[in-house]
Write a protein that binds this DNA or RNA. Structure first.
Lengths: 166, 166
DNA sequence: CTAAACTTTCAAATATTTCTGAAAGTTTAT
DNA sequence: ATAAACTTTCAGAAATATTTGAAAGTTTAG
């Protein structure tokens, strides 16, 4: 397979993986493009290579920066902004986990907590409270584990995993 | 908060969590409804309680069964089919992880493997292959870890996690 | 200050996903 | 065999998510 073909397929693969995990396809494609690029790319280059509009390119580049996995880079004597993706996949993974935990997991934990306050005290209410507790158990454990993964450095985490596996 | 209100909020919460993880909102709502129901529900009851069509109810119930987290139940002297959700959240979690791993993670690993076969042998191709290897590293580790989580029972897993935390 | 170069915004357009409901299919009782 | 009771299918409709592109905003050079 030719390199350019492989790059293109990678961009597609990354895009469709993202879609099934509720992440904007274009955002993932921009990310993949930057990951495979040797040089920082300008908005115009991203627009051209992915055939997307200026607004779209700008929006997704900004969101990638919000997620902390893409950085701006300036070239001296050039007013354009250039963008680079963090090439360290472990760091990328940590940033994504951190963001999603904050954006999606924590609000749900909060919501489940508040749902435990059902007034009634019959059998059904009791069962409902138990359900919420069970959900909170799994969710909170996931939250703690992810927090740990995010805070730890790769070697620490991987060592622990290897021990787990043995 | 009244129980009925809490149930309704739970159905909504679960539905919107699902949306941000690429799972059909209605499917999650049907699941939440069955989770909070003391009795098995028929298709008609699901339709009525969530105000959705027959086709939609049928489709999502079937998909929940595909995922292995909802079961059919028959009542003697009744031709209708009734549905129950597995109330053991750990089991539900395992089933979901198992399915998504199979449906989404494994195809990506396969795809990354094949992308390593870039013909060229210049610097850029080398960098591309390294990127694929790094991605495969994280992805495969995640795959192995999830597989482990799914195969283990809760206590085993939780014990290991506690050790990890200490 | 002015204008050119560039970035950001957002309402409308487009694309994608999900849902509806009637028709077709299936099963069971008699 | 027939019909009633129920389930499944799927083409078109509706809802949701994403994208466009032109206008507005911002920054910098001169």
């Amino acid at each position: 397979m030719k390199l350019d073909e492989a790059k293109e397929k990678f961009v597609q693969t990354w895009g469709s993986l993202a879609t099934s995990w509720g992440i904007n396809r274009t955002m993932a494609m921009v990310h993949a493009l930057l990951l495979t690029s040797q040089q920082p790319l300008s908005t115009d280059e991203v627009m051209e290579q992915l055939a997307i509009s200026r607004g779209n390119a700008n929006m997704n580049l900004r969101e990638l920066m919000d997620w902390g996995i893409v950085k701006k880079e300036l070239k001296i004597g050039d007013r354009k902004e250039y963008f680079v993706a963090d090439k360290d996949i472990w760091t990328v993974f940590k940033h994504i986990v951190k963001e999603r935990r904050k954006r999606e997991l924590e609000p749900v934990i909060h919501s489940l907590e508040s749902l435990k306050n059902v007034e009634d005290n019959n059998e059904e209410s009791k069962a409902f409270r138990e359900l919420m507790d069970n959900l909170l158990g799994v969710t909170t454990k996931a939250n703690v584990l992810l927090d740990l993964a995010v805070k730890s450095d790769e070697n620490w985490m991987m060592n622990k995993l290897l021990k787990l596996l043995s």
